[in-house]
Design a protein around this nucleic acid. Structure first.
Lengths: 126, 126
DNA sequence: CAGTATCCAATCCGATACTG
DNA sequence: CAGTATCGGATTGGATACTG
């Protein structure tokens, strides 16, 4: 389980609660859109529309939905400028930046084993 | 995009193809069940039923589905022992092991920022 | 034991329309 | 511009039954 090393509490019930919460966080964040958004925000602050352009293929709806989720979990900071038309900027927080390292790692992994994976798919499919 | 550093080819069409393939791999693998399976296989080889017990909450169907996907992408090796009843063992390949480092990173991240995230959620929900 | 196939509910997600 | 709400089709995923 994700929290097997989280042993601050010795209370059984608390451990279970913490466990399910950790699992929830994990399930929230471990999805492709969240990862691609985090990757895009890595370079710095972006507006909603800039993000939509940068994360190719994402729909308006998925972008808002995932941004809310990331904001709720404290990975991105949402700053609204009270201008007209409104300007909303998204920035990675410290936890968000920390997770970016992981996401970067996965991108590197994709490049590194690209050929290997492609070959494996051919073998499997044929 | 995920493959922005993948520049072995100078051909535009190939780059596009590689890009979409990289995105496909990324989308395949960046999901919670795949991550939890990889994490579970980190300690070593496991049978199908052992995996189902270890990855709590996963259904029979999701486990087979994700194992096939991981096998296709060359992250896990599937070894069938022709006994009766059958014995099937799953092991991480080199690319699988490499990705495990990334997944481990995410687990560490969850523990490290657990309190931060919990607090952020409270702030957001209230 | 491991795996496939099927059914059906839950959810995901895109398109569209509407608001401040 | 950024966001919410809604609808309906597509996909996901669990439960169950069946096979070698």
């Amino acid at each position: 389980m994700v929290t097997k090393q989280l042993n601050a509490s010795t209370d059984e019930a608390d451990l279970t609660r913490a466990d399910s919460l950790a699992r929830e966080i994990f399930s929230d964040v471990a999805n492709k859109w969240a990862f691609l958004i985090i990757e895009s925000l890595g370079a710095g602050t972006l507006r909603f529309s800039e993000l939509r352009d940068k994360v190719e293929g994402i729909s308006h709806k998925m972008l808002t939905q995932n941004l809310r989720m990331l904001e709720r979990n404290g990975l991105v900071d949402r700053k609204v400028h009270p201008t007209v038309p409104p300007r909303v900027e998204y920035t990675l927080t410290e936890p968000g930046q920390a997770l970016r390292a992981t996401v970067d790692g996965m991108c590197d992994w994709t490049h590194r084993f690209f050929g290997h994976i492609e070959a494996s798919r051919h073998r499997f499919d044929g």
